[in-house]
Amino acid sequence: MEHIEHLEHTESPSNMKSQIWNTFWILLVLTVVDIALYFALLSNSSIYKNILFVFLGIVKAFYIVSVFMHMKFERKFLVWIIVAPMLFVCFLIWLALNEAGYTFDSRLF
């Protein structure tokens, strides 16, 4: 039943282990920075604070996808197949926040 299969895949670099641990430390430090910033900016309610937290989230996502999920070493074509459709999410965010602004204005408590 079982047989040795031919498997197509992209190679990992020889320093994969150190890249994994570097990514772990980056993620850990960014999470600590997140929490430190949360308390440092507690009395601040500007939209830029939210953008800052989302930006830090995207940086973390970049490291998870590129190293942990091996995306950095895949063919560019595969990378774009997965990343490009996420532009629709950006559109959805823009659309939703725009409308939410109007809903906020018309809300009666």
Binding site: I93, A96, T103
Partner: peptide, 14 residues
């Protein structure tokens, strides 16, 4: 994304 955008929408209206 759609769940989180829904959250963002509701959060933004408060």
């Amino acid at each position: 994304s759609s769940l989180l955008v829904a959250y963002g929408f509701v959060r933004f209206t408060f």
